[in-house]
Amino acid sequence: MKRTFVLTNHKGGVGKSTSATNIALGIVALLRQAGAANPRVLLVDTDSQSHATLVTTGRNDFDEDNSLYSVLMANRQDAAEIMGQVIVPSKWDENLHVLPASPMLEQAERELQGTAGSPYRLADPLAKHAPHYAAVVIDTHPSFSLLTEMALVAATDAIVPIEPRYLETVGLMNVISKINYIRDGWRIPNLRVSGVLVTKMDRRVRGHHKLLDELSAHPILGKLLCGVIPMNEAVSYAHRYHRSIFVQNPKAPASKAYGQVAGRIVKYMGTSGGA
């Protein structure tokens, strides 16, 4: 099964979209550097705020006709075909494609709530497109809403971005057990939590170090730690100018950190039989 990474955490502003977009681009660039025949990555934006869509495509005017909304509301037989029609190229890289979000997604969520099979409305059509990508990366809304559930059902690997100030292991274990709960509830044994990504790490704050040390020492969570992204103003600028961190400032500490996370993920994809 094709590796499909979902960046999720019900806490807002922890760097889900920043991580999803930069990791997606990082995978493309690394695979290309390694001479892979197919370095294409699909970024799926399931967040009605459309931040990931905006920064990667320069647009946030996708609506009922040309966004993920169209896919979710389509007849079951037509959904895959429509997905093919609404995927757009990104402005970041020719091999990074985007399935755009739309504010309409909130409405889709209301309409689909409780209808049979709704959690599979993303997974089913995506299964027909995923084989043509080296990987799929999904960004989510800061909640465990129906759309996030759809994203998890469609995914193979959950990566949980987390700010050091929320690093209490209890809170993190809660996110993980919620993901496991969804996995067991919808019988999607392929899904697992395969990474915890610490974001906005400020080395000057003593508390951050302490929490990070604690996390590394934890028997389960320590093994899941897949990267530490420093707090870096280049990230904010990149966000504002709709650029990737790598283009905004390749020398910034956050560039290096995201580059390494992408590297680890690509290695993982290769060794886990994911491609």
Partner: peptide, 27 residues
């Protein structure tokens, strides 16, 4: 902006020898 080769090179530099480890799988 829009210089894919530069970008790939940059990420390659962050990942050093990892690149040579990227399995044939992708090739």
């Amino acid at each position: 902006r829009d210089d894919p080769d530069k970008l790939s090179e940059l990420l390659g530099s962050f990942n050093g020898e990892l690149l040579s480890e990227i399995p044939q799988h992708f090739n």
